[in-house]
């Protein structure tokens, strides 16, 4: 059955092949992300998509998502090899609306039963923004925790979101994520 499945899957997937996953390593240190720079104390594997994904042990266990300037009217998500998904960002949104839209987009691929447990004003480097915390389950049913920081800067959405398995992995790399947030600087 497995051979048959492999054959069939191969045949059906042959046509749209050509899309390949591309990872690169983000070394510890300071990285210029355009409008601002960040400093990471640990190395990450980066997958370029919208949002950009960073992970240490694999996306199933922990990851950082980065929306690096979603323009007014642009969709918030675009997974590699897939069409744009999620809500169209509006520069007029407030924090609650950004988080609602972000969670709705996440629910398509990464998040089940997402629930905001905290949303409060917070700084995003030198800018006024907001921070949020969520609890959710991964598509495989693993209990997860997430925390994010965002700001709308000149009508563009900038957002970092870190999530990890509630057991072990969330706590393990949370300090690295917090160090990244603390390092945001122009």
């Amino acid at each position: 059955m497995r051979r048959v499945a492999a054959l069939l899957g191969g045949v059906l997937l042959a046509a749209p092949a050509g899309c390949t996953y591309s990872y690169r390593t983000i070394e510890p240190g300071t990285h210029d992300l355009g409008r601002y720079a960040i400093t990471t104390p640990v190395a990450w594997s980066e997958w370029l998509a919208r949002p950009t994904v960073w992970t240490v042990h694999g996306e199933g266990l922990e990851y950082v998502l980065h929306l690096n300037g979603v323009a007014d009217g642009q969709k918030m998500f675009m997974e590699l090899g897939r069409r744009e998904t999620g809500h169209r960002f509006l520069a007029s949104w407030r924090a609650s609306e950004v988080v609602d839209a972000f969670l709705a987009g996440m629910s398509r691929r990464r998040m089940n039963a997402g629930r905001v447990v905290k949303l409060a004003p917070a700084s995003f480097g030198p800018w006024q923004g907001f921070g949020f915390e969520v609890e959710f389950e991964s598509p495989m049913g693993m209990p997860m925790r997430g925390t994010g920081r965002a700001a709308i800067i000149d009508d563009e959405l900038h957002l970092f979101f870190y999530a990890g398995a509630r057991e072990h992995y969330y706590e393990k790399h949370l300090p690295a994520f917090e160090a990244i947030l603390a390092s945001i600087a122009t």
């Binding site: 407030r94 609650s96 988080v99 905290k118 409060a120």
Partner: peptide, 10 residues
């Protein structure tokens, strides 16, 4: 509500 602080700021 989790977003109490945010809405209070509004």
């Amino acid at each position: 509500a989790g977003d109490r602080a945010m809405v209070a700021s509004y």
